[in-house]
Design a protein around this nucleic acid. Structure first.
Lengths: 129, 129
DNA sequence: CCATGACTACTATTCTTTTCGTATATTAGG
DNA sequence: CCTAATATACGAAAAGAATAGTAGTCATGG
């Protein structure tokens, strides 16, 4: 019986790294770094450090067989989005998932979006059968 | 014409303060502090400082007429939730509100929740007419 | 074989957020 | 009045996140 589930919510910079990983799974630091630098430049060691920290935290795993370690995200994008969401529901929506959806759809939902959501609900109920 | 809209996303500690304010609008630092301490204790000046910072940032306004300043949130809980959400949609959901809703409803939506959402969608379309 | 380039580890710096101590002013009770 | 309680302001320490520099190692092409 585990005491407290370690919160797996990545920080902002970590999320950027994860995005790259999700696109091109196992990857070396070098590859990840190049990809990140397309958006905004930083030192190679910054990316490296980031990966090392994420490894300690258990956000990524790596293959150390060769000199250049090869990284993979441990949690999928979907899983991560879910944990970000549930963290947020707790902190900013009084624990109510419904409130979050209301707020998200609330003001600016287009007619099209609305029917998309309807379809989603339909398929959710299907699966429940 | 304003250049860049200042992001109004409160930090975690700021959000805690805001929650108290939304419950018992205008309030003194003392009142806010007592309320916060029910959850977790901290120094009075910590709460004070928090409010001062939030004031500078334009998250709260205050009445300085009397010695004990009286604070009010500038943005409603709904507005704040919206900006937190849109911030998050940008950063973690590739800008897709739909994806966020999918993720939120995805796994654990109960039958009851689903029908609640349907009702919500109905009323959204009503308003659109 | 060895010099050069590329890799990891470690440490330090910077920036932001959060927390708190101290100084100073104001108010109210005895 | 004057002391004790309570405010604000200010500065700075502490904690967390992000960035970067340096040292040492490995591997490989010339």
């Amino acid at each position: 019986m585990s005491k407290f589930k370690k919160k797996n919510v990545p920080t902002e910079a970590e999320l950027e790294v994860l995005k790259v990983l999700w696109k091109t799974q196992p990857a070396t630091v070098r590859q990840i770094h190049e990809e990140l630098n397309k958006k905004q430049s930083s030192a190679y060691t910054t990316t490296l450090k980031m990966l090392q920290i994420m490894h300690e935290k258990g956000l990524v795993e790596r293959d150390e067989t060769n000199r250049a370690h090869i990284y993979k995200a441990i949690y999928s994008e979907e899983q991560t989005q879910s944990s970000i969401l549930s963290n947020m529901i707790t902190k900013a929506f009084g624990g109510s998932k419904f409130d979050l959806v209301v707020r998200a759809l609330g003001e600016t939902a287009s007619t099209e979006e609305i029917s998309d959501i309807r379809d989603l609900l339909d398929s959710l109920e299907e699966n429940k059968k």
